[in-house]
Design a protein around this nucleic acid. Structure first.
Lengths: 220, 220
DNA sequence: AATATAATGTGTATTTCTTACACTATTAAA
DNA sequence: TTTAATAGTGTAAGAAATACACATTATATT
C-alpha cells in the first residue's frame, strides 16, 4: 500500500514588525485560485530536506537557510482525491535578502506573496492548521533555539532583536528587562560599529555568537 | 510518485526506576532477528492515529493511551529496499496495566519485550535515532505537559512521581525542593488514602487534577 | 513487647531570576 | 538651534530555585 508524498514549506520572514509567511496562489484543481503553502511532490530518490531546499531556493533564490521539520499531516480527508501525506517544514529567510526575488516556482502556482501571520486568508487543504501548529512551535522554542537570529541580518541592533521576539510571542516586551535578559544569556558579541543611514541616534550593532550559544546548551 | 508508508511506535512505560521501551524481535528480512520498534504499514483508508492505536492495542491490550507524533523519517537509505516513509509516534502505558499482556502483534515479529532506555541494543533501521529524538522531546516537554502522569496509576505517591521525573530527566532531584515545586504548581489533589501493602510507613496518595492543569496552561 | 528497618514528611536561609517602572543621551534633519 | 526620533541605562521588590538534615511512622522480626 503506497501513498502520494509531498512536502509543504512554511517560509517565514520578518518585515515591518510582523512575521510574514510566503504563500502561493494555486493554478490547478483542487483549490484552484486559493492561496496555499508552497509545496511539492518529493522525487523518488530525493531526501525530504533536499526537496525543501529546492523549493525554498526556487521561491526565494536563497541557499543555506534555516529548516526544521514540523511533522507529518496525513489525514485521509485532507485531499479530495484521497490521502496525500505531506511533511511540513518551516524555514526562515531574511526579508532583505529576498524581497525582490520572491516568485512562484512552477506552473502549478501563480503569484507568490508575503502575508502577515496576523492576516492570513483561508487556505487550501489543511494549510491554516499547519501554520497554526508551526507558530505554536516557534513560540515554545524561542528560548532554546536560534530561530530569532535566522530572521535578522548578521549584524543587528537590540531593538530589531526585540521586535522579532515581540512578533513571535505576539506581545510587547519591556525594553530594559529584555536587554538585561539578552545580556545575561551572553550569546551576543557587541560590535564597535553602529547602525547607518538613520535620522536619529544610531544604535550599536551586535552579532550572534553561535559558539557561546552551543556552550550554554551543551548536553553534559 | 508514491512511497510506502508505515508508522512506528515508541511505547514507554515506567518500571523499577527506569523508563522502559517496548521492542519486538523481527522475524522477517531485512533485519531478521534484530530488535526494532513495533511498526506497521498504514492501511489505505486508515488514519495514522488509528494505526497507532491499533498497534498499541494489539501489543498491550490497552485502549485510550497517550499518543503524540514525533515526526516523519523518510531517509532514502533508511530501508535497504528503497524509501519507506515512517511516521513515529510515542505512546505511554502504565506498566502494571500491561505487564503480563505484552505480546508480539503479527508473524513479522517474534517476541515483544521491555528494555530500559539505558540499555538499548542496536536496533533495526534508524530506530535508535528515533528513540533518541523521542527521549529528547520527553525531556523538554516534561514541565508543560501531562506526560509524567501517563506513566502512573490514578493514585500515586509523591515519591513515585519523583521517580518518573528522575527517570525522564536522567538525574536525581532533591526531595524537599521537588515537593515544594509540585505543591506550588497545584495540579495534584491530596487524597485521604495512603499506600497499602508496604512494609514501612505508608505514603499519602495523590491524584492528578486535569482541570487545574488546564486552567494554568490556558491560552489567554 | 522491644527493636530494627525503611521510607515518609517537613523548614529555613541564600541565591538567582523576574518584573515594574522613567528619564537622559545622542544623532540627523529642519 | 530646535525638533524629532530612538538609544541606552538602574534599582527595588517579589517570586522562584537551590542547598541542606533529622524526627516520624508503619511494618516485620525477634
Amino acid at each position: 500500500m503506497q501513498t502520494y508524498f509531498t512536502i509543504d514549506c512554511v517560509v517565514y520572514s520578518f518585515y515591518e514588525g510582523n512575521l510574514q509567511v510566503l504563500l502561493t496562489e494555486r493554478n490547478e484543481y483542487p483549490y484552484k485560485d486559493w492561496w496555499a503553502l508552497p509545496g511539492f511532490f518529493v522525487d523518488k530518490h530525493e531526501e525530504m530536506e533536499d526537496a525543501v531546499k529546492r523549493i525554498s531556493y526556487e521561491l526565494t533564490g536563497l541557499k543555506d537557510i534555516f529548516m526544521e521539520q514540523l511533522g507529518a499531516f496525513a489525514g485521509v480527508k485532507r485531499h479530495p482525491q484521497g490521502r496525500i501525506l505531506t511533511v511540513a517544514y518551516s524555514t526562515i529567510v531574511k526579508y532583505d535578502d529576498v524581497k525582490s526575488r520572491v516568485r512562484p516556482v512552477t506552473d502549478y502556482m501563480r503569484q507568490a506573496q508575503w502575508f502577515s501571520v496576523k492576516e492570513l486568508p483561508e487556505l487550501a487543504f489543511d494549510h491554516n492548521e499547519i501554520i497554526e501548529k508551526s507558530l505554536q512551535k516557534l513560540k515554545t522554542s524561542i528560548n532554546y533555539s536560534t530561530v530569532v537570529y535566522e530572521f535578522l541580518p548578521e549584524k543587528f541592533t537590540l531593538t530589531q532583536l526585540q521586535q522579532v521576539y515581540e512578533a513571535i510571542l505576539n506581545k510587547p516586551l519591556d525594553k530594559r528587562n529584555f536587554r538585561k535578559k539578552i545580556a545575561n544569556a551572553g550569546f551576543l558579541k557587541e560590535l564597535s560599529e553602529v547602525q547607518k543611514g538613520v535620522s536619529y541616534r544610531a544604535a550599536r550593532l551586535y552579532k550572534f555568537d553561535k559558539r557561546k550559544f552551543e556552550k550554554t546548551f551543551a548536553v553534559e
